[in-house]
Design a protein around this nucleic acid. Structure first.
Ligand SMILES: [Mg+2]
Length: 225
DNA sequence: GCGACAG
DNA sequence: ATCTTGTCGC
């Protein structure tokens, strides 16, 4: 299938972002989330595997996992991750029930305040949080690598856009930012409550591992025919 | 113009 | 993100 040129997709996204930004809202969660969905993708050849892990926040247990396999139809271009991974996530979340999305990537800690978590949160009208292993945009003060310490990520105009958070002793921080319909405080509290033995919040780490398992399994199927 | 740059 | 064993550091 031939799709529109990448430049056209970028222009279209930028127009959509302007529209979406008007609906963007930071606010405290109305109630504690019951179901949180964690999102991550992996790749092989020209395929993208997008994975979904549904998690009971209260019971701290995985409810179900699933994945969607598609052809890659946009390259990785910094600040345009939404075009690469967004469509699959939207497809996979259709007809699903959840109260909050936590996505591997940025929320508002993004040059256009439109990281993939914000983009999805507004499009799907759901609270969302972005959790990234690296910073994309903004500045923060270095902090000691002591679990629990955090530092504000500041945007171009001196505004708060997220946090660098140490989740494990002697490791680099993770970079968290609100996506949509959530406060900075809720963002920090919820992510902190999901930290286990590792740097990455446990369910996000698990969906990442799952995505690699799916990939390995699909690769074996190809090899066997 | 140069460099930085989520996944 | 991906290719991939050993190896360094905590
Ligand atoms: Mg990822």
């Amino acid at each position: 299938m031939i799709s529109k040129p990448n430049i056209y997709k970028i222009e279209k996204l930028r127009k959509e972002e302007e529209k979406l930004l008007k609906k963007f809202k930071i606010e405290k969660l109305k109630k504690e989330p019951e179901i949180i969905v964690f999102l991550d993708s992996s790749y092989f050849n020209d395929n993208i595997i997008s994975c979904f892990l549904f998690y009971s926040y209260k019971n701290r247990e995985v409810l179900k996992k699933k994945f969607i396999l598609s052809k890659i139809d946009f390259p990785y271009i910094p600040t345009y991750l939404s075009l690469r991974e967004g469509p699959n996530y939207i497809k996979g979340l259709k007809n699903e029930e959840y109260d909050l999305m936590i996505i591997d990537g940025q929320g508002i800690a993004h040059p256009r305040k439109m990281g993939i978590a914000t983009y999805l949160g507004i499009k799907l009208n759901k609270p969302s949080i972005g959790v990234a292993k690296n910073i994309l945009y903004g500045t923060y003060k270095q902090i000691n690598k002591e679990k629990g310490l955090f530092s504000e990520i500041i945007g171009e105009n001196g505004e708060l856009i997220g946090y660098a958070l140490i989740t494990k002793e002697k490791t680099n921080p993770i970079f968290i930012s609100p996506g949509n319909l959530i406060s900075f405080e809720d963002t920090l509290n919820i992510i902190n409550s999901l930290i286990g033995r590792h740097r990455i919040p446990e369910p996000l780490r698990e969906v990442h591992i799952y995505s690699r398992e799916v990939k390995r399994s699909l690769n074996e199927n190809i090899y066997n025919r």
